[in-house]
Amino acid sequence: MSLWIDSLLAVLAVFLAVRCLLAPTLPQCVFLFFAFGLTLALAWARLGAVDVAIAEAAIAAGFLGVLLIDALRDFSRSRSTGEGGDRPSRVSQGLVGAGVLVFLVVAIEAVWRVPNGGGLTALAADNLPQSGVDHPVTAVLLNYRSYDTWLEVGVVLMALLALFATGGREYFCRPVVRAVDPLLRQVILLFTPVLFLVGAFLLYLGKTEPGGAFQAAVLWGAGGILLHLGGWPVFASMAPWLRHLLLTAGFGFFLLLGFLFMAGGGALFEYPLAQAGLLILVVETLAALSIAAALTAIFAYFNGMSAESAEPFTPASS
């Protein structure tokens, strides 16, 4: 039975990926991408990596999907400016296809022949008592390799700055006021606290079970995006200093804590065992908050981009 499910998922993932690449119109492409993301999430769950499955479903299918649909709306509006570029010739298409095929065959062969190196699973489990948490994935992310996680939290912030750079402005526009369905507004009001609680639960769960900062952040970010769409642009209309504090809290506090313990004679990100559990929870909470803020900011910024003439919340005068 499980073999059937696994084979079905494997075939479905490849099929959806190919269909997505070959889809003739952009909307089809986007929705196939959704379906592909969800299939991948299921595959991760089948592989026993529930944390990755949640992250895949929430970020790749959920958050990216929302951004893509938002972009799609802008595309359909400016359709009149011209349809696509010139298509590559059949010969070059064939050559690229053949090249990709050869690459895939060689890659699969190489992956097939990977000798079993054992990995670090046993070592990570052995050191759990010294890490301050009870779940090996959380121990890897926030203690053994916290330096990588710290830089990755920073990458989310840098992505937002990169978006500011491409958009040519560093402030958020008032969202285009559309008639919002009163029922929708009620549903959003109902959902926001639920999303917040489920996010907090996932965050706390990370101590012992699959879950953690990135998963919680996506749920909180979803809450922020829903509020924005419902006509309460909470994040975008915040005072700039508060907004910056939210965006930098995770990355900054992580580093501050690292510097503090380094001043005490330890290494960067070395936590004393007695406080490690608590410190990791605080660091995770702030990181989740910052990532959620960055995700909301990315959406709010995109959403404001479609209305070029919209007035800013904070004028850019210096």
């Binding site: 670090l120 070592l123 050191n127 330096y147 330890g266 290494a267 990100f269 070395e270």
Partner: peptide
């Protein structure tokens, strides 16, 4: 040694 962990576990 970041986090006080030696390789291969740490960075």
């Amino acid at each position: 040694l970041l986090g006080g962990w030696a390789p291969p576990l740490g960075i």
